[in-house]
């Protein structure tokens, strides 16, 4: 599948934003979230900025962005529509949570209630995003539980890494260590989920073959001898993406190294220091590596996934 930049940015940015919101709500409920206004403005502001930027970028790849509002209508059957509805509904509790937290209520029950509902809506929105992919039978690499697990873990993981950095920058050493511990746990969980996802791709049997696609399988091996067209077409550009697939193994190693291993080492180091300039620098390194790793992971998620329509263009089994 063609890895569109706008979709890679959308899923990683909004995933990180929703992930931040989840942990802000959890820390608030535990009574650990700092209540000062500058931190609130930066943390909630960044989370909202990531969510909004992601959602906006997802409309950039549309042929008619001005009609995007129509995508909210078919929630009964379409996961894409459900995602749009969930994303918009999530703004209500998340916005109220941020407002309450930064103004009158602070740790009041109302703010926490909005926070918990907002966190649940954030996870629900990430889930609907993952189901857009996991519901497509035509792409066996996506149609499995590991796709859903990947999105549900990597979003909150990314959010935790960002928040750990923010706490380090603002010098909240106490809550920083808690956040680093959560981030480390999610980084370990994340690398396990991705490893199991790739294992699933390796061991699962193909769903469709050139034989079933043409119905000629009973005649023996089915091979394409003449393509309908000599140059590319939409199907091959969108669904037959092959560029750099030969680097897949290298890119997987880069994903594991930058997305998980480096952040685990640097955040672990920062945790041991329990504050100070060095901890901030290590947290920054952890975030930079993690963000690059997740972008690579998302690129691979698309580029590696084979679509069954390629069976009509020379692929033997998908």
């Amino acid at each position: 599948m063609h890895p569109a930049r706008s979709v890679i940015f959308f899923t990683t940015a909004s995933g990180a934003g929703y992930g931040m919101m989840v942990w802000l709500a959890v820390l608030a409920t535990l009574g650990l979230l700092p209540t000062d206004l500058p931190f609130g403005l930066v943390a909630f502001g960044l989370a909202f900025a990531l969510i909004v930027a992601g959602l906006l970028s997802s409309t950039f790849h549309l042929g008619h962005p001005e009609r995007a509002w129509r995508a909210l209508s078919q929630w009964r059957s379409s996961w894409l529509s459900r995602e749009g509805v969930a994303a918009i509904l999530a703004f209500v509790p998340l916005g109220l949570f941020a407002l309450c937290w930064m103004s009158l209520d602070r740790q009041g029950d109302v703010a926490l209630l909005f926070g918990i509902v907002g966190a649940a809506m954030s996870l629900l929105t990430i889930f609907t995003t993952s189901m857009i992919y996991a519901s497509l039978r035509t792409i066996p690499a996506w149609r499995n539980g590991w796709t859903v697990a990947g999105y549900l873990v990597l979003g909150p993981m990314n959010g935790a890494v960002i928040l750990a950095l923010l706490f380090a920058v603002f010098g909240y050493d106490g809550v920083m260590v808690t956040m680093q511990a959560i981030a480390l746990a999610l980084l370990v969980l994340g690398v396990v989920v991705k490893a199991l996802y790739w294992r699933h791709l390796r061991v699962s049997a193909p769903v469709s073959t050139a034989g079933t696609a043409t119905g000629l399988g009973h005649l023996g091996k089915v091979e394409l001898t003449a393509s309908p067209h000599d140059s590319d077409n939409y199907l091959l550009r969108e669904m037959g993406f092959r560029i750099a697939r030969k680097h897949a193994q290298k890119l997987r190693r880069i994903t594991i190294l930058l997305g998980f291993v480096v952040p685990i080492l640097t955040l672990g180091g920062a945790m041991l220091m329990a504050g100070g300039a060095m901890a901030t620098i290590l947290s920054l390194l952890a975030w930079l590596a993690c963000q690059t790793g997740i972008a690579t992971e998302r690129w691979l998620f698309f580029a590696e996934a084979k679509h069954v329509v390629t069976l009509y263009y020379g692929e033997q089994a998908v």
Binding site: G63, H64, L80, E238, V309
Partner: peptide, 14 residues
């Protein structure tokens, strides 16, 4: 149609 292309992803037959 908003041109999101998801229908073309969902179709096995291109």
């Amino acid at each position: 149609c908003i041109g999101c292309k998801l229908c073309s992803w969902a179709c096995p037959y291109g």
